[in-house]
Design a protein around this nucleic acid. Sequence first.
DNA 1: AAGTGGTCTAGACCACGGC
DNA 2: CCGTGGTCTAGACCACTTC
Lengths: 253, 253
Amino acid sequence: MATNKKWLASADRLTARIPSAVPAYQRIQSAIRKRIDSGQLHPGDPVPSERDLAKIHHVSLMTARHALASLEREGLVERRRGIGTFVAPPKIHFNKLMSYTEQMAARSLTAGAKVLFAKIVDSENEAAARLSLPPTSSLLKFERLRHAAGEPFALETCYLNAAEFPGLLDAPIGRVSLFAILERDFHVELGYADEEVDATAADPRIAELLAIPRREPLLRIRQVIYSAKGKAILYVLGFYRSDRHNLVIRRFR
Amino acid sequence: MATNKKWLASADRLTARIPSAVPAYQRIQSAIRKRIDSGQLHPGDPVPSERDLAKIHHVSLMTARHALASLEREGLVERRRGIGTFVAPPKIHFNKLMSYTEQMAARSLTAGAKVLFAKIVDSENEAAARLSLPPTSSLLKFERLRHAAGEPFALETCYLNAAEFPGLLDAPIGRVSLFAILERDFHVELGYADEEVDATAADPRIAELLAIPRREPLLRIRQVIYSAKGKAILYVLGFYRSDRHNLVIRRFR
DNA sequence: AAGTGGTCTAGACCACGGC
DNA sequence: CCGTGGTCTAGACCACTTC
């Protein structure tokens, strides 16, 4: 108990009267993250050692250690035995689930989209199946033509369960990211997406919309986007001009 | 020191005289892994609690805890506060770097390949560039026609630095997985691969080899495979029949 | 109340890398 | 040699879940 009296004393001194404020190791992480985000610490710079952190934050070695160990798991720092802990080089985000808008923003481009279609449908049984819904469920269906640099680029059709997203039909889908609307207005926490990729030939309609010859090869991506809890939220069927789009993924052994 | 005498005593009892045998938390992990692999423990089954493991293996709570925590990071178990630790359901391996042979084996199919070409070349500058080598480097070049269920399926061309893999030309590439040869005979530890995926149309030669009409859409995958240390080892250019192949990836938010 | 995982202490020794 | 991270102890209290 002597142990814990001392711990209470130190926690007291820092932030909390209630024992259950924010765990100490998370406070330490926040402090380090802040110094990295604010540019005080750059990639390659040393982070205070476990022992220093323990002194600075008035915690035991194990706690400081825990803070650094999970920062390493996140890829924010690298630890080298006998040497120290260092800010990790900025990581390229492979295989990250991003909206088209976010992808463009990541490359400092602006996204453009023209809504071709936005209605409720009830006989698209393949789309319903992808969302794990009964075959004739009411679905919101948006069809959008994506642009980049003034050129048509991709045709994407999105499907959502109409019952779960009332009012979404009236949202400014043409201007605002669908992801942003789902997360902000409907409090959906997006988690992951499974994608099936194959190649197909442009049919006459798609060829005209994308301004390419008929039978031109296209990348076809069928994407089912799930919430963090694993519930199917959104099905997107996309056709991408293969001369303007190329999918990059990283696989690990 | 009283503390550490006790620890030495327990380590002694189990495996080691030398203090630096295998860390206790790793021994605990091995024991659990073994019980899962051998079928003694099935997905959903409870794993002994931290306190039980500590007693069983004569270690402190923190050590038992460490063992379970890193097993959870690996995805082998799931921990639920107030409930316990349970064997995780077998995970589908998304975005895993696997050889064609391994992919087929995962689906209990046998892989077939016919070697069309196996020589050293020195004027394939694109391939050399992908491997971060000078433009006219000597490269091993293999061209293989993949089969599945008796049907031609994909055309893959592999390039490696000739200087680093002497004797590989004589290896039984037609029968044994290239990955296996690299890992076993050349002690290369494969780490990850970056892939570029797009769609293209079959040219006359590919159309004939794959037994499909000319201009048929194909999936084209350019894959650079790196060692665990980040060195480019292998460049694979593949053309896949889109009616027989479809690429599945998972993205996370 | 009992049992679980989550956080934490105040130390210890070991293995490693640079001086 | 000294400082770093890696492993470990023998406890403690908290938060949560089930009974």
